[in-house]
């Protein structure tokens, strides 16, 4: 071959070796991550899948959860999640819009809000639980209730939700903001008709992250929605979330391990459903709206 740009043999050999090492290390990391997830999923399915019958989902728990199903637990979980989202999504969206669209001219405000959120995001969930207990349960007199639990979760999820919703809005190209401004469109109309629809995939991702965090939360709920197992009659009733049920069955109830695995599989499936649903929505939306140019 006509080698018009010869590299010295030593350099070539050393570069190739470094390349191989880096690639190998990256592969190793990927394998470790996949293995860890695979191990957990396999363990859960191995022990829990056999429990997954229609009765398990629709019957009330009995004998402290050792027997029976998850009906009241699932209802409580969904109620807490719904309350959490109903409170967190409007506030989160509002704050994200402020950060992404309005704080450009007022950087100090933007920086202040963002820093507060980063601090909040780092606060351990048990602290949120204590705060929720003191504020919602005691000070506002909600007692141990689904409402107090949902609102506490909302506080906890907000930082994550706001930052990812903000990210979604920031990914919308400035071209459209300029185009709308140059056409004399008001900021509100631009947001409503162009920016929010264009940011939808990013917003959905933010929502999924928030829901995932809310579904998985245990510590904050111990102090706020409590761990009563009966079917809640209203949002002012105490109720037990899935994650708390799993914790209680595996730690405090001898002979509860089997049903704990079953409940864990249900929780995993819920998370998976939320993820797939969000992915489907985002993909469907992108098919109807091709990207710029």
């Amino acid at each position: 071959m006509d080698d018009w740009l010869p590299a010295s043999g030593r350099t070539r050999g050393r570069t190739a070796a470094a390349d191989r090492t880096a690639a190998g290390a990256a592969w190793m990391c990927a394998v470790i991550v996949t293995l860890a997830f695979g191990w957990i999923a396999a363990d859960l399915l191995w022990h829990g899948l056999s429990r997954l019958t229609p009765g398990f989902l629709f019957e009330m728990p009995q004998l402290s959860g050792r027997a029976g199903g998850l009906a009241s637990i699932i209802v409580s979980t969904l109620a807490i999640l719904a309350i959490c989202l109903a409170a967190a999504v409007p506030i989160g969206l509002g704050a994200a819009i402020l950060l992404a669209e309005y704080s450009r001219s007022d950087r100090r405000l933007g920086r202040f809000v963002r820093r507060s959120l980063d601090v909040l995001a780092g606060v351990p969930s048990i602290v949120f639980g204590l705060f929720g207990n003191a504020f919602f349960c005691v000070y506002l007199g909600m007692g141990f209730s689904l409402l107090a639990g949902g609102l506490t979760l909302a506080c906890m999820v907000l930082p994550l939700l706001i930052r990812s919703l903000e990210q979604g809005l920031r990914e919308v190209p400035d071209d459209w903001r300029n185009a709308a401004a140059a056409l004399g469109m008001s900021k509100a109309a631009t947001l409503r008709s162009i920016l929010l629809p264009a940011a939808l995939p990013g917003l959905v991702v933010g929502l999924v992250l928030g829901m995932g965090r809310a579904l998985a939360e245990t510590a904050a709920l111990l102090f706020t929605s409590g761990y009563v197992m009966r079917m809640p009659g209203s949002v002012m009733d105490s109720g037990r979330a899935l994650s708390i049920h799993i914790f209680d069955l595996s730690m405090n109830v001898p002979g509860g391990t089997g049903n704990a695995y079953g409940a864990a599989v249900v929780l995993l499936l819920m998370l998976l459903t939320v993820n797939l649903l969000a992915l489907a929505i985002a993909r469907r939306w992108q098919l109807t709206q091709p990207g710029p140019l």
Partner: peptide
């Protein structure tokens, strides 16, 4: 105004 890059809305 007409911009350098065409910027129709994603509508």
């Amino acid at each position: 105004m007409l911009f350098q890059r065409p910027n129709p809305f994603p509508l």
